[in-house]
Amino acid sequence: MKFKKFMRTYRPFTRAGMLESVAYRANFICFLLGEIMSCFIMFFVWKAVFNSTTSPDFMGFTMSDMVVYLFITFLTGYLTYSDGTYAIATEIRDGSIAMRMIKPCSFDMCFLFQELGNKIFNVLVIFVPIVLGVEIYRWAITGVCQFDIVHFLLYIISLVLAYLISFYFNVSYGFMAFYLKNLWGADILKECIVNFLSGATIPLAFMPTVLADILNFLPFSSLSYTPVMIYMGMYSLDEIALRMLLQVFWLVTMILISKAVWNHAVKRLCSQGG
């Protein structure tokens, strides 16, 4: 009963998000083509690297591993991307957050369901081509089909966890606009640091052991590195279980942080304009 009511309240937000993303589909596709370009650049760089070295692997990664890593990291980053920081900061700055607060629904749930709606279209356009492309490439290079359904399903679960962590992290970060008012610079700083700490720019396996161990424990590796490594089959099942527990731990932590910041910030909210 409760669940039904919950879905009835939030389904319209999903619908709105979906319509929004379909309305701007041309923009989305142009944007995607621009972003995926960097994967192809790195593909050519790695090809040249493997041509320049005699050993078949680079710090434990073969060429086909590297290609899977590049494209699945891109896919994971894209699907777990959450716009919360920017959207919340904008609403705080122009005061429209006041309108959200007088509605009889939870603030973060509205955002979450709207964003999920937004993602449905994106998932359809990007997920299948990339996974298919990567698998065909791997198959053509090694001669055996390496697609593993168990790892794939575990990847999906880990991906969903990663998205939720990313969502609550971004919501908490966006609430900082309650204190800072303008969040443009801080937003770029976040992007930059998260990309580095999550292993999206440099695989954690290439870093010094001590640094890699620390980063593996921090929440950022849960955002991208963990699901990607699961997809690639780099972890044993025991390790996967441990990693996912860590993801759940960070998810709970992020939810608690976002609630705490919200409760504190609301008391001193000073709406601008509106």
Binding site: S52, G185, L189, I193
Partner: peptide, 30 residues
């Protein structure tokens, strides 16, 4: 805000260059 923007750009570039450094630690030339 402006300062954080500029600094984060610097960090981003440093990471990219470190990455190139890691690649070149394994190969003599590209």
């Amino acid at each position: 805000d402006f300062l954080t923007g500029a600094i984060s750009f610097l960090i981003g570039q440093v990471v990219q260059i470190a990455f190139l450094g890691i690649i070149f630690s394994q190969i003599p030339n590209l």
